[in-house]
Design a protein around this nucleic acid. Structure first.
Lengths: 219, 219
DNA sequence: CAAGGATTGGAATTGACTTTCCAATTTTGC
DNA sequence: GCAAAATTGGAAAGTCAATTCCAATCCTTG
């Protein structure tokens, strides 16, 4: 039995020029969909932005749904890779703060427009496009994993108590990031994001301090 | 100097029948926009749902933007009023948990579809409709105020230390709610919401315990 | 260099949506 | 009960998006 091909065929580029075109389309679509939403981004919009004709978009992505799926994949992987160096070392309070602050600076730079690349797409598409939802879930999962494994390392190291639920802490930080970005987007001010994220990190720091105390009590 | 009339004129209904029609439209639009997004909800959709003709919608709301604005107002106020009894007594850890769990049960009931009524609209409209953004900011502010005043009461009462930043705690809880709902929407499982919210409330509970300790030390 | 696939441009089709308009019809205030 | 205002139905205009199609042109490979 063949695996069913549910997704719209997404043709890979065979020539160098094709690859560049495909990339240009993807980048343009990602940017527009981030800034204006998926529904607010038309194919002609993407055409203008990427300087391509309609046939090129349909050639490489099949249809708008295919293009959207590609954008989700793009945002999920590329954005994750960009942060890779930091993500791989989220195993201290300082590292967590640094990572979150990095995002805050980005928010400042764009006046909080757009919120989170994945979060915006998630809110718009989850309920109306099942396959998009799966892609977005995977994107979030990757992020959660990154946070969680950092915390797990802290636990192994003894910075956090052995009974600490690092998974719950990771989900909470991720939620605070997403919710904080949303609040900041609405108020056009990164303060809500900064406050929410820092309170959650404070909480993690408290857990670290607690582990410290109980360890010295054992001595 | 007259105040400039920026918003689309929204005509109030003058007759009983008109009031009912207007209400039917508003409810239908709110429900559809919640489930399918604003962009995903067409005027014909609302017509079918509310059993009205196009002219009735345009008569009462001017245009789609006016209808959207009315839906924002509706969700902000009506949803807030629904929760009023609970919102007015968010001045204990148990009350906070109860209130958040209430929302979790609703998520369970709808399999996490739609997320938060305000949050979804916020994510979709903040960047593309300035006046909608303001309305949504007001909606969030109302919620934050409700949480914050509960916490402030706890502080006055001595449950929380006098130096506690209840505003930051309120923002954090709100962010966890929003972010948690988003994560739950994407994963179609209320667990992320429950975990995020409860970790934040755990943190508040820790602050309460700390206040307790320092008070008994004073004795 | 010739064949065949890859890529591209641009027109054409189709359909849906927003909004306007006007002619009924109903309700209200007097 | 009557004039004025409110409400309603439904058609129609105008716009724009998604997608298809086909005829070029470009590139690769033998």
């Amino acid at each position: 039995m063949q695996t069913r091909r549910v997704e719209t065929r997404v043709k890979a580029a065979a020539t160098e020029g094709g690859r560049r075109t495909r990339d240009r389309i993807l980048r343009a679509a990602a940017e527009l969909m981030f800034k204006q939403g998926v529904a607010g981004t038309s194919i002609p919009d993407v055409q203008r932005r990427a300087q391509v004709s309609a046939s090129q978009i349909y050639h490489y992505f099949g249809d708008k749904k295919g293009l959207t799926a590609a954008v989700i994949e793009y945002q999920s992987t590329v954005k994750l890779e960009q942060q890779r160096p930091l993500l791989d070392h989220l195993d201290s309070i300082d590292a967590l703060r640094e990572w979150c602050e990095r995002a805050a600076v980005r928010l400042d730079a764009v006046h909080c427009a757009g919120g989170c690349e994945i979060g915006s797409l998630a809110s718009e598409l989850s309920d109306i496009d099942p396959s998009a939802r799966l892609g977005l879930a995977a994107g979030f999962a990757a992020w959660q994993t990154a946070i969680e494994s950092g915390l797990a390392r802290m636990r192994e190291r003894g910075d956090l108590g052995a009974d600490e639920d690092v998974s719950a802490l990771a989900v909470t930080l991720l939620a605070a990031i997403q919710g904080g970005m949303l609040l900041s987007q609405v108020s056009q001010d990164a303060t809500p994001y900064r406050r929410a994220v820092n309170v959650v990190i404070d909480h993690i720091a408290d857990r670290v301090a607690a582990a410290q105390t109980s360890r010295s009590a054992d001595r």
